[in-house]
């Protein structure tokens, strides 16, 4: 069983209220050295068989069609799960 991991992040110019709330909570807990936080999404797609470039291309297409909204988000990574993080 192969796996494709997809990371989707809010576009840099989009205000990320969740990230803002997270960094505020971090500061209250004493993690004040972290000046910013942005919250994104990680998807894991399972695939019967080995993940090759064609599968990654299809996964990217799926990411751009459904998993992300191009108005507010970027697909920042599409990779086979075995790749080094």
């Amino acid at each position: 069983m192969g796996r494709v991991v997809i990371d989707v992040m809010p576009k840099p110019e989009i205000l990320d209220p969740q990230g803002k709330a997270v960094v505020g909570a971090l500061a209250r807990l004493g993690f004040a050295e972290f000046a910013g936080a942005r919250q994104g999404k990680r998807f894991e797609l399972e695939f019967e068989g080995e993940v090759d470039q064609a599968v990654l291309d299809r996964a990217r297409e799926a990411a751009q069609t459904l998993l992300s909204n191009p108005v507010i988000e970027d697909v920042v990574a599409v990779r086979a799960a075995s790749d080094p993080e």
Partner: peptide, 17 residues
């Protein structure tokens, strides 16, 4: 409608959460 691209832009979480 925005997800359908029948209208432009997007609707995101309220500024104050």
């Amino acid at each position: 409608l925005t997800e359908s691209h029948l209208l432009p832009g997007a609707l995101v979480r309220n500024e104050k959460q």
